[in-house]
Computed example of a mutant assay.
Amino acid sequence: MKIAIGADHGGFGLKGTIITHLEEKGHEVIDLGSYNTDSVDYPEFGEKVAMAVKNKEVDRGIVICGTGLGISISANKVPGIRAALVSETFSARMSIEHNNANILALGARVTGPDLALEIVDVWTEARFLGDRHERRVNKIIDIENKYSK
């Protein structure tokens, strides 16, 4: 799977851990920054990853900031993006199986690296179930389309 990843300064360390892990698992990772711990603004990185997903340059994306909140809100402003802020494995699986999320958001200051890697593994291995869930995701898309005109 080809995955874009982006983080602000608060998520920089966890981003590196996740990149190494994903590459060891055979995934192709596109690092969209940040590239050090200097203070930066999370909306820029949420948008970069979201645009890579929207433009189909990658299959999925991962965004990380201190809490995961700001960067997930930013990514979700891009039409077509369903970024799910996840802090445990059950929601990671459900975000794909039921909601067809295309971006995983993590909070580096609230989710430790071991748990974050478990979440990433569950999330990358999960597949959208379709059926009644597709109907519901289509209703989300309809809401998005209604208000983005």
Rank of each mutant, 00 (worst) to 15 (best):
L115I: 14
I73H: 10
P79E: 15
R93C: 08
A4K: 12
N138A: 14
G11E: 04
K139E: 15
E47S: 02
G112C: 02
V63C: 04
L104M: 03
K149T: 15
M94T: 10
D59S: 11
I64F: 08
A126N: 11
A126F: 13
T111V: 15
V49K: 03
D8R: 00
E28C: 11
G26V: 04
T20E: 15
G112V: 01
E23C: 06
V137A: 10
E47H: 09
G112I: 01
R60E: 10
E57H: 05
N100S: 13
I18Q: 07
K25M: 06
V29F: 04
V137R: 06
R132D: 07
G107I: 12
H27E: 01
E88A: 09
E88F: 13
M1W: 11
I71V: 15
S34A: 04
Y147R: 07
K25D: 01
L14H: 06
D142R: 09
L14D: 02
T17N: 10
A84R: 06
P43G: 04
G6S: 08
T17M: 07
R135T: 09
A75V: 07
E144V: 12
A52Y: 04
G46D: 08
A75N: 08
I81T: 14
K15T: 02
A116W: 06
V40P: 00
I103F: 06
I103P: 09
L14S: 04
I141C: 02
A105D: 08
G46I: 08
W123I: 01
L129Q: 11
N100M: 08
N145T: 14
E97K: 15
N36E: 07
R60C: 01
G61L: 05
I119C: 04
I19F: 02
Y42W: 13
D31N: 09
R82G: 10
I140L: 13
A83G: 12
G70Y: 00
K146V: 10
E97D: 14
K15E: 01
R82E: 11
V120T: 07
K139D: 13
G11P: 01
F12K: 01
I81V: 15
A92H: 09
K48S: 03
S74Y: 10
G68R: 03
L117K: 13
C65M: 07
H21W: 11
S87H: 15
A84G: 12
E23V: 12
P79C: 13
D8Y: 00
N76Y: 05
A101Q: 07
R82L: 12
A50G: 13
